[in-house]
């Protein structure tokens, strides 16, 4: 356990020095939340809706941190460690390289949770946001979306041979997920055909789930749950199948 905590401390410091994951994972979603609050304030989403834009956006914005860690930080770091033979170096110590991957995942989880909590704090303090649905269900859903997206991130790490390909694949996956899934731009304002296409992104289903739980909606969540559990299982099986230490 001491090993784990020392590694966590050092890797934590390293991540804090890496400004892009903090910017994309924490600063950007908090900034968007402030922007939405300033633009729409307490106005309802549409004239007949009973919820404010902040309320309907919260679930989506909470996933931006997950998105930045799952599709940038995790695959890129693992590809980099493999490329630089850092994982290989860990093979010749009493600690397994798996420990290194765990430490890294925990740091990213912490980063996403901090991002979500900050968004919540900002929304509550400045724009008197209240979650309508149960907080506990929301947290559970959040966790599911997180592990499901992380398993897809691990899959990218396993499939990409070099840091260069990982970089390209991450950009191809990250940006559409960020902009088309409803994480940053509200899904509802997309034209219908685009909504149909974007519905295939696993994160879109994750956001649907979080939106429903945060708004306490009584809609059927069977499809999002199937997609999320499906991504989780497929991601884990395939990433283990194709994983290479070097």
């Amino acid at each position: 356990m001491k090993k784990f905590l020392t590694l966590l401390k050092i890797k934590g410091k390293l991540s804090l020095r890496c400004i892009d994951s903090i910017f994309f994972g924490v600063c950007m979603p908090v900034g968007i939340m402030i922007l939405i609050g300033l633009i729409s304030g307490q106005n309802p989403t549409t004239s007949d809706a009973g919820t404010t834009l902040i309320q309907s956006s919260f679930g989506a914005l909470a996933t931006v941190g997950i998105c930045a860690t799952a599709f940038m930080s995790i695959p890129l770091t693992i590809a980099d460690y493999r490329d630089k033979k850092i994982l290989k170096q860990f093979f010749v110590t009493p600690v397994s390289p798996t420990m290194l991957l765990w430490v890294h995942s925990v740091i990213n989880m912490l980063l996403s949770v901090v991002s979500a909590l900050l968004i919540y704090a900002v929304a509550k303090t400045f724009f008197s946001y209240e979650m309508i649905g149960s907080k506990l269900t929301f947290m559970g859903s959040y966790l599911l979306v997180m592990v499901s997206m992380y398993s897809l991130g691990l899959l990218i790490a396993s499939l990409c041979q070099t840091v260069k390909t990982a970089n390209v694949v991450c950009s191809i996956v990250y940006f559409p997920m960020l902009f088309l899934s409803g994480a940053t731009i509200p899904f509802e304002i997309f034209p219908k055909p685009l909504q149909a296409v974007a519905g295939f992104l696993p994160l879109t289903q994750g956001i649907k789930l979080l939106k429903s739980t945060s708004l306490g909606l009584e809609t059927s969540l069977l499809f999002p749950l199937i997609v999320l559990f499906g991504s989780l299982v497929i991601g884990i099986i395939l990433s283990i199948r194709f994983f290479r230490w070097e």
Binding site: L14, R17, K84, T93
Partner: peptide, 17 residues
Amino acid sequence: YQGNIRIGEICEEMAAL
């Protein structure tokens, strides 16, 4: 080595193992 790591930190990390 891992990007951004300092000499003292890599030593501390190895020692912890």
